[in-house]
Simulated scan of single mutants.
Amino acid sequence: MLEDMRLFATIVEQTSLNKAAERLNLSQPALSRRLARLEAELEVDLFRRVGKRLELTPAGQVTYEFALELRRFHGSYLQKLNAYKSSEAHDATIGASLTTLQTTLPDLVKTMTEKHPNLEIKVVTGKSHEIAELVKERKVDFGIVASSVIDDPAITSLPLFDDHLILVLPRNHIILERTHIEMADLQNLPMILFSPGTWYRTMTDELLKKYNLKPDVRMEIDSFEAIIRLLSACRAGSLLPRSYLREQVLVDNDLYLAPIQELEETRRTTFLIHGDPAWLAPSTRFLIEETTAYFQRESVRYKST
């Protein structure tokens, strides 16, 4: 049936048996017999002749649409099947939380595509438990989330790196005139915080409550980039994940990191999660290995800075 539909679609697209036979490297009588056999099997006429041209009948139009769908699904199948034959990936779908998408994924995607120019990466966002479900349903190749999924035997969690919040301030902020900054200095400090409901904001609120601190919250924004750009203009500070604050980000926005020991209590591990190893294509296993190696290198570089 697959081969018959391929021949039929070629006849439709060439609009004549002679042209189709030439394209398919068949004789015209042989192609005519194949068409007649297909029509007999389906018990319908697929074409009507208009002069020297062939036009589709209504049944032929329906059959052609089916042939196109069959061609598309067959191509997709072959592409997926090829992933099990080679460790060279041509596409990857990664699941990530919104905060992971902003803090972790951009540099990873840039590194991976520079190393593999033909690699196409798609990203699906969601909450950690939603990404875990996508991994289990094999709708993503793997996920990167800021929590492990140790209670689900269908998912493997690989630790990538530890992160924690850190105080970031404009370099000309008056508080930096002090020789030592403590948690108490956050009291009434003008600040821009991440929007409520996110892990970073929840952790921030818990920390401030623990130390009975109330900063002067000027803005609540759900974009790390927007917070970074507004700090100097608002002469405000913020508590942001250390992993996001690359040296170039600090230089470009004239910012300074003010270490406070208590902020390391907000430590959290980001994990790569994937499903049953038996279902992983060699190309996916290769990308997972490269991803974990990338974060190992980044962790070493982060600790040295």
Rank of each mutant, 00 (worst) to 15 (best):
L68S: 00
L68C: 09
R71N: 10
R71C: 06
F73G: 03
H74T: 14
G75Y: 00
S76N: 13
S76F: 06
Y77F: 15
Q79E: 12
Q79N: 04
K80Q: 09
K80A: 14
L81A: 14
N82H: 11
A83I: 00
A83Q: 10
Y84T: 10
Y84V: 07
Y84I: 07
Y84L: 12
K85G: 09
K85T: 03
S86T: 15
E88F: 13
E88C: 05
E88Q: 14
H90P: 00
T93Y: 08
I94W: 08
I94C: 13
I94P: 15
I94L: 15
G95P: 11
A96Q: 11
L101N: 11
L101K: 14
Q102H: 07
T103K: 08
L105Q: 06
P106C: 12
D107V: 01
L108S: 06
V109S: 07
V109G: 01
V109K: 08
K110P: 00
T111D: 13
M112G: 05
T113G: 04
T113M: 08
K115H: 08
H116A: 04
P117W: 02
N118V: 03
N118F: 02
L119K: 09
I121T: 06
K122C: 00
T125A: 14
T125Q: 13
T125N: 05
T125E: 04
T125Y: 02
S128T: 10
S128R: 11
A132F: 10
A132M: 09
A132T: 08
A132I: 10
L134R: 13
K136H: 02
E137F: 06
E137A: 15
R138G: 00
R138L: 07
R138N: 13
V140T: 06
D141W: 01
F142W: 05
G143V: 04
G143N: 01
I144A: 08
A146N: 08
S147N: 11
S147G: 14
S148M: 04
D152S: 12
D152Q: 12
L158M: 12
L158Y: 08
L158T: 14
P159A: 01
L160P: 04
F161N: 05
F161D: 00
D162I: 01
D162A: 07
H164D: 01
H164Q: 13
H164Y: 14
L165F: 02
L165T: 10
L165G: 11
V168Q: 02
V168R: 05
V168F: 03
L169M: 15
P170R: 03
P170C: 07
P170K: 07
P170Y: 00
R171N: 15
R171S: 15
I174F: 02
I175N: 04
R178C: 05
H180P: 00
H180I: 12
I181A: 06
